[in-house]
């Protein structure tokens, strides 16, 4: 199924302009940084409760939100969620310390999504998902489903960051702090890029970097195809590039 991307936003440390992103895509370095997005669109009293993971999600979501139809479903995906918060809560439990009510209330996978829909007063359906290394592609498939059912638009937001220290030794792919948001539609329109995703049974070896990193490299590198192989599936993205 062809989808049309009408809005695209991405955040990663130090990459502020499309030129920054294009330069980054040539080297495809997996960035490592403690930097965090400013999320100016989020009220200060809410912003104070966000970890970097939440800031990543809300930074890109709020930057395309102005174009969002009122009835557009919102899909948030993240492979690991807020592992900094998870680690802190579990350590407090292990040390028999009381849990922070704030941290506990925001420890679910849909925490950032929930805050986003509250801030923007969104009453359309929303869904947060994780699917291992396939997460971002599965979120895309979910968006396709909503569009096939007649939704005029779907907002797809994905964010991840390197795992918290305790889990880091078990990482099976390189991740960087980054987020992307796409406003997807089933109808073509001016300035909309046509993109399709197809899948085939897994054949090759999984790569070293996360699907989000690979997708960002592909998106800003302006090449027509992206093949991404996980232990389950071979994903294939294709797009029509505008003529220069």
């Amino acid at each position: 199924m062809d989808l049309f991307v009408s809005q695209f936003a991405a955040w990663a440390p130090g990459l502020d302009t499309p030129t920054d992103w294009a330069t980054w895509a040539e080297q495809a370095d997996v960035l490592d940084s403690e930097a965090s997005p400013p999320v100016r669109a989020v009220p200060a009293m809410t912003r104070r409760r966000l970890t970097r993971w939440g800031r990543l999600a809300l930074e890109v979501a709020t930057s395309v939100e102005g174009h969002l139809a009122a009835d557009a479903p919102v899909i948030f995906s993240s492979r690991h969620g807020d592992t900094q918060r998870t680690q802190k809560l579990l350590q407090d439990l292990a040390h028999e310390e009381p849990l922070s009510p704030t941290a506990f209330s925001l420890s679910v996978h849909n925490a950032a999504l929930g805050l986003f829909t509250i801030i923007q007063r969104i009453t359309a359906p929303s869904l947060a998902l994780a699917a291992g290394r396939d997460t971002f592609a599965q979120a895309w498939v979910e968006a396709q489903g909503w569009l096939a059912e007649g939704a005029p638009q779907v907002l797809l937001v994905h964010c991840d960051e390197p795992l918290a220290d305790f889990y880091r030794p078990d990482a099976d792919e390189a991740e960087m702090p980054a987020a992307l948001a796409l406003l997807l539609s089933s109808e073509p329109g001016p300035g909309r890029e046509r993109v399709s995703l197809s899948m085939a049974p897994h054949s090759g070896e999984p790569g070293d970097v996360s699907m989000m990193v690979a997708f960002l490299v592909w998106w800003f590198g302006r090449t027509p195809h992206l093949e991404f192989c996980t232990e389950r599936t071979n994903w294939h993205w294709e797009r029509e590039l505008e003529l220069p």
Partner: peptide, 16 residues
């Protein structure tokens, strides 16, 4: 200050 109910819980813990 404009705090909310979660802040109240957090403050209770902090006082302890």
């Amino acid at each position: 200050l404009g705090l909310d109910s979660i802040d109240a819980l957090e403050l209770g813990l902090a006082l302890q």
